[in-house]
Amino acid sequence: MGFLPNNMAEATRLWVQVAQIAIESQMVIGMRLAGMMGFLPQHKNESHRMVQEKFDAAQEAGSAMMTAMTRGASPDQVMAAALRPYGRRTKANARRLTRASVKRGS
C-alpha cells in the first residue's frame, strides 16, 4: 500500500511543513535573484553558498531518513525527518536575507 499517515494530525503537520518550505524557498529565490540583478545588496559568496547548501541539506536529509527508518519510524515520520534539514535552511536563509536587505536598505 502507498504512503498513509497514522492520523489526520500527522498528515496536516506534514503538509504545513511542506507549505512552509515552499513559501520560504520562493522568498529566498526571489531575494537571491534580486541580489544577482543588483536590486538588493548581496554578499559576494552568496552564489557559492546557494549551491553548497543544497548538497549539505541533501546529505543531512538522507542521513535523517536512514536514522528514522532504522529506528522503525512510520513513513510519515521518515518524511518529516527528511524535510527538517530543508526547513531549517529555508527558514534561516529567509531570515538572513530579509535581515540583510532591511539593514542595508535603511
Rank of each mutant, 00 (worst) to 15 (best):
residue 1 M to K: 00
residue 3 F to E: 04
residue 3 F to G: 01
residue 4 L to G: 02
residue 4 L to Y: 06
residue 5 P to G: 06
residue 5 P to D: 08
residue 6 N to G: 09
residue 8 M to G: 06
residue 8 M to D: 13
residue 9 A to N: 11
residue 10 E to W: 08
residue 10 E to F: 09
residue 11 A to E: 03
residue 13 R to Q: 14
residue 13 R to F: 14
residue 14 L to W: 03
residue 15 W to S: 10
residue 15 W to M: 10
residue 18 V to S: 01
residue 18 V to Y: 06
residue 19 A to W: 03
residue 21 I to S: 00
residue 21 I to A: 01
residue 22 A to I: 02
residue 23 I to G: 00
residue 23 I to K: 08
residue 25 S to P: 01
residue 26 Q to Y: 11
residue 29 I to K: 03
residue 29 I to Y: 07
residue 30 G to S: 00
residue 30 G to K: 02
residue 30 G to Q: 00
residue 32 R to I: 09
residue 33 L to M: 12
residue 35 G to A: 15
residue 36 M to A: 14
residue 36 M to C: 09
residue 36 M to F: 13
residue 37 M to L: 14
residue 37 M to F: 11
residue 37 M to R: 15
residue 37 M to W: 15
residue 38 G to F: 07
residue 39 F to L: 03
residue 40 L to V: 00
residue 40 L to M: 03
residue 42 Q to T: 07
residue 43 H to Y: 14
residue 44 K to R: 13
residue 44 K to C: 12
residue 44 K to A: 11
residue 45 N to F: 07
residue 45 N to W: 06
residue 46 E to H: 02
residue 48 H to R: 12
residue 49 R to T: 14
residue 49 R to L: 02
residue 50 M to W: 10
residue 50 M to S: 10
residue 50 M to H: 10
residue 52 Q to S: 04
residue 53 E to W: 02
residue 54 K to P: 12
residue 55 F to P: 00
residue 56 D to E: 07
residue 56 D to P: 03
residue 57 A to K: 01
residue 59 Q to K: 05
residue 59 Q to F: 04
residue 60 E to T: 04
residue 61 A to W: 07
residue 61 A to K: 01
residue 64 A to C: 14
residue 65 M to C: 11
residue 66 M to K: 01
residue 66 M to E: 02
residue 67 T to K: 08
residue 67 T to S: 13
residue 68 A to C: 07
residue 68 A to N: 03
residue 69 M to Q: 05
residue 70 T to P: 06
residue 70 T to C: 12
residue 71 R to L: 09
residue 71 R to D: 10
residue 74 S to G: 06
residue 74 S to Y: 02
residue 75 P to G: 02
residue 76 D to Q: 15
residue 80 A to T: 09
residue 81 A to E: 02
residue 83 L to D: 08
residue 84 R to L: 15
residue 85 P to Y: 01
residue 85 P to H: 11
residue 86 Y to M: 04
residue 86 Y to N: 09
residue 87 G to V: 00
residue 88 R to T: 15
residue 88 R to W: 15
residue 91 K to R: 14
residue 92 A to V: 13
residue 93 N to K: 02
residue 93 N to E: 05
residue 93 N to S: 12
residue 94 A to I: 09
residue 94 A to S: 11
residue 97 L to K: 05
residue 100 A to E: 04
residue 103 K to A: 09
residue 103 K to I: 13
residue 103 K to R: 07
residue 104 R to S: 12
residue 104 R to T: 09
residue 105 G to H: 09
residue 105 G to D: 07
residue 106 S to N: 15
residue 106 S to T: 13
